[in-house]
């Protein structure tokens, strides 16, 4: 039996009727049509579905959508504001940190959460923040460089 759920995604409210067993990832992708969050493993191993739940990165594939009611959900589609890219997005574009792009949304969300609490992370802190995100294309190097290229003045 489907149940009513209200989700707050990227500042917008969505009133949905969904099956209670659906994950946040599936609901974002298939009900709200925000397909920027990717399904790479559906088991919390790859990080491609990373979204911020009340500001913290989580695997959307491991959250039941119904349990995210009343919480602030930020997806990759909400990272740019008013048509202006987030500095992280700009840095990824500028530094060549994007290849196939499948892991990119999840990695950007993990890094956004990092920078929100730690605007001047060390390389080790960057690696720890990204450790739950796999990328097969880039070898991560240019991603590290992109974060390090950001203005770190407090």
């Amino acid at each position: 039996m489907k149940i009513p759920v209200t989700l707050k995604v990227n500042g917008e409210t969505y009133d949905l009727i969904i099956a209670p067993y659906r994950t946040l990832l599936d609901v974002l992708r298939e009900e709200i049509h925000l397909t920027g969050s990717k399904k790479g493993c559906d088991a919390g191993d790859c990080g491609a579905c990373t979204v911020l739940l009340d500001g913290k990165p989580v695997n959307a594939c491991l959250v039941l959508a119904a349990t995210a009611q009343d919480r602030e959900i930020l997806t990759i589609e909400g990272l740019a504001r008013n048509g202006k890219l987030h500095p992280l997005q700009e840095a990824f574009v500028r530094e060549g940190a994007v290849q196939c792009g499948f892991c990119t949304p999840g990695i950007l969300m993990s890094l956004k959460a990092l920078l929100d609490t730690n605007p001047a992370p060390t390389l080790e802190e960057i690696k720890i923040a990204m450790a739950g995100n796999l990328c097969r294309c880039t070898g991560y190097s240019k991603m590290f460089k992109a974060v390090e290229s950001l203005d770190r003045s407090p």
Partner: peptide, 9 residues
């Protein structure tokens, strides 16, 4: 445990 996402959940 795991990494940030898993530790948060």
């Amino acid at each position: 445990v795991g990494a940030a996402q898993i530790q948060n959940l």
